[in-house]
Design a protein around this nucleic acid. Structure first.
Lengths: 236, 236
DNA sequence: GAGTAGATCGAACGCTGTTCGGAGTTTGTT
DNA sequence: AACAAACTCCGAACAGCGTTCGATCTACTC
C-alpha cells in the first residue's frame, strides 16, 4: 500500500537498514532538490529525471529513498510550510489571527504557485498539516462555537483562500492581441451586466478582490460568534 | 498562438474550408467523446489515443479538429455547463438565487469530479463562462453594491464552492488500516484541539460543513447590502 | 483535366513514471 | 577468514503520453 509508506515517510520512521553500503543521500536532500526544481522551473518541469540530475545521481536511485513521485510531492508539501508562523501564534483576537494567516497564505500561493497546484494531492496527512489544523482550531477557543463549527470555520476560510488563489493562478496575464480577437468574436452587448463591470475598470479574477470576500466571510463568522456569546435578551 | 485558436474554437468560428474531402467528424463529436471518456474512467484516463479509439479514428486525425489537448479540455468545460440553470433565473431574492446556484455547483462537482479538476485550466473564456458571469452579476442588481463589489461577491462565492469541493475531492475515503497506522505513528496528544474535534465525531474535509461556510459568507454579504440600503439614520 | 488544399493516419520523436537485473558494498554469521 | 545476506546504485528497458511528419487519398477550383 503506497499510502502507508507515505505515512511512514511523512512521520520520519527512518529506521536505516543494518546491511548494505552507506547511502549517498537522504530523503531530506531529495525533497529539497525537488523543491528547488519546482521553485526554479515550475511544477511542470518537476520530473524524477530532473531531480536526479539536480542531485548528480541516476534516476532509478531516487526510488531507494522515495517510493514514487506521489510520495515525493507529499513530502515537498509538508516541508514547505514547516516554518510559517501558526495561526494561534499571531497577535490579536480570533479575527486578527485568522486574517493575518489568510493574508500570509494568499501571499505564499502567489509567490510559490507550485504549492497551490500540489495542495490537496497528499495521500496522507503529515506533521505540518496536523500542526496547522490544531493551531487553527485553537484560534476559536473561547468563542462559544461548537467543535463542528470550529472545524467548519477553519475549512471555510481555507477553502476561500485556496479557491481564490487558484482562480488567480490559472488566469492568464492580459494579452492585448487576445483581447482584440475576443472583442472581434464576441458580441458583448449580450452580456450587459458583465459589460458594466468591465467598463467600471474591474478585472475579473485578477485577485484584487481578495480582501472583500475575506472580510465578508469573517463578518459572517463574527456575527455567529456574537449571537452565541450575547445573553438571551428580551425579544425571541 | 494556441490561445487564439482556442478562442476561435470556443466561439465557433467554424468557417469550413472549400476544398478537400469531407470531414468524417465534427468538433462537437470529438468534444462529446472526450467527455464520455472522462465521465466513464476519470480525467486521468483521458488521452488523445483514448478519445480517438472511442471515435473509431486514428489518433492523429483529432488534430485536424482541435489544435491540442489543452483546447479540447477548454471545449469540454464550456460544453458541460451549457445546460445548467443560470443564477438569475432561479426564484427568490439575490440570496436565494446565489444559494441555489452554489448548491447546484457543489452537487455538480461531486457528481463529475473531472469538471473540478479541469476548471480554471481554460486558456480563454468561452460563451458559457461569460453567460454565467453575466447572470451571476445580474443577481446583485438593485442591491446597492458597486460594480467592483458585485464582481467580488460573485468571485467569493465561486472561490468558496470550488475551494471546498477540491478539498473534498482530494480527500481519500477513510481506510481503517491507514487510520490504525496513523494512530501508531502519531502522538495525538500533541494536537489537543484537533483531538477534541475528532472526538466530537467531526470528520475534517468531509464536505459536511459546506452549508456552514456558505451561510457565513452570504451573511457577510447580506450585512454589507443591508448597510448600504439602510437610510442614513441617527447615530453615525 | 490539372492543380491544390485539405483529411486521414501509421510511424516516429521525445518525454514521462516506474521496474528489472546486474554489479558493487557493507554487515552479520559461521 | 570466508561466506551469505541485505542493501545501494543505476543503465536499460517498458508502456504510456502529446505531438509532428510525411505519404496517400479526396474533392473542389480553375
Amino acid at each position: 500500500m503506497t499510502a502507508n509508506r507515505a505515512l511512514e515517510l511523512l512521520w520520519r520512521d527512518d529506521r536505516r537498514p543494518a546491511r548494505g553500503p552507506q547511502r549517498g543521500l537522504t530523503v531530506d536532500r531529495v525533497v529539497r532538490a525537488a523543491i528547488e526544481v519546482a521553485e526554479a522551473d515550475g511544477l511542470a518541469a518537476l520530473s524524477m529525471r530532473r531531480v536526479a540530475q539536480h542531485l548528480g545521481v541516476g534516476t532509478a536511485s531516487l526510488y531507494t529513498y522515495v517510493p514514487g513521485k506521489t510520495e515525493l510531492e507529499a513530502l515537498m508539501l509538508d516541508v514547505i510550510g514547516a516554518d510559517d508562523p501558526l495561526p494561534h501564534e499571531r497577535p490579536g483576537d480570533w479575527r486578527a489571527k485568522l486574517e493575518a494567516w489568510a493574508r500570509a497564505d494568499w501571499a505564499e500561493f502567489r509567490a510559490h504557485p507550485w504549492v497551490l497546484q500540489l495542495v490537496n494531492k497528499s495521500p496522507a496527512p503529515g506533521p505540518n498539516l496536523l500542526r496547522w489544523i490544531d493551531s487553527a482550531l485553537r484560534v476559536f477557543d473561547g468563542t462559544g462555537l461548537s467543535e463542528a463549527e470550529k472545524m467548519a470555520a477553519v475549512e471555510s476560510v481555507d477553502a476561500y483562500v485556496r479557491g481564490l488563489a487558484r482562480q488567480h493562478l490559472d488566469q492568464a496575464e492580459p494579452d492585448p492581441e487576445q483581447d482584440r480577437l475576443l472583442a472581434e468574436l464576441v458580441d458583448f452587448t449580450r452580456y450587459p451586466s458583465l459589460l458594466r463591470v468591465l467598463r467600471a475598470g474591474v478585472r475579473p479574477w485578477s485577485g484584487d478582490q481578495f480582501e472583500f470576500g475575506l472580510q465578508r466571510l469573517l463578518d459572517g463568522i463574527a456575527a455567529l460568534i456574537d449571537n452565541r456569546s450575547a445573553p438571551p435578551e428580551g425579544h425571541q
